[in-house]
Amino acid sequence: MGIAYHQRLAPLVAVRMWCQVPAPSAIDLHVDNMMHTLKKLFLPLLFVGTLVLTGCEANNMDDETTTLMLRLQPTVGTQDLSSDPATVYTIGDQNLTFGSARMYISEITLLRDNGEEVTFTGETITVPAKNENDETITHTTSDLFILAKHDAGDEMFTLGEVPAGVYEGVRFKLGITGTNNNIDPSQVPAGHPLAKQTDKNNHWSWNAGFIYLRIDGLLDLDGDGTVETSDEAGWNVHLGTPNFAQVIELDETFTLDGDGMQTLHLIADYARFVEDVDFSDPAQRICHTMNNLPVAQKVAADISGAFMLHGIHDGHN
């Protein structure tokens, strides 16, 4: 995981990237060539060295950093979310369970009180994708993506090193947009969040693009407090396509003190996602976005209100 420093620190990042240009193989280098190369590189190296020293100085002035983790805690109202089929939740006047509860988060950005924005980066991948003309291209991205598999429990994620200081909020996107949403997940290395999942897939096999929010489960149709297992009792919301990606900004001031590891604790209330969907209406029980735009729109409208910044904790808890 890494971090992209915008504004003042950006030139330093650029220089470091420039230095990563692969060197020629040692076998191919004769002494003369080496000297010639060194002569050619002298001025650029001097320039780089100056910038690096300047950057180090700036970094020192920028106080300390902290390793920031993200806890994205799933709840259903005031309860913890569980995908145990025996755990029945009451949302409005609907009793239901959660089977899948997964979401993609991207473009996580911390908002500093001095106007700077700190955007996190992730593992670099180079993979096939489609451009706007439906042509297959080779696409490289270092963006940080988080696939929160909340049906498997409460997860922690590493965001990266962050300058200590006062922050006024956090912004992120539920969903994935741009060319990143047209990546072919079948070719993404296993272990990367965008790789094709082999269970509870967060990518449609019949359509391009990632499923930003995947929630499903069973309904208590007869009101006896337990859910039925018939096909009619199934509900799902698979929300995707760029139109439904949502930017969420939580404006609350917090301080990162630069002392080791700290955790940004957010809460995702899954009850909010479905509180306006009337599952007593069979027409609202199945939503794969395109097949049921009215339900997709209801869910999307409730997304921003489903997240809350709980606070900053020391360590990783």
């Binding site: 096939p128 439906d134 297959t136 047209n182 072919d184 070719q187 096999s205 391009a208």
Partner: peptide, 14 residues
């Protein structure tokens, strides 16, 4: 709905 031959392979499997 499918953008590449590679990704298409998975659709009928599932």
């Amino acid at each position: 709905g499918s953008q590449t031959l590679e990704s298409q392979v998975l659709a009928p499997l599932e």
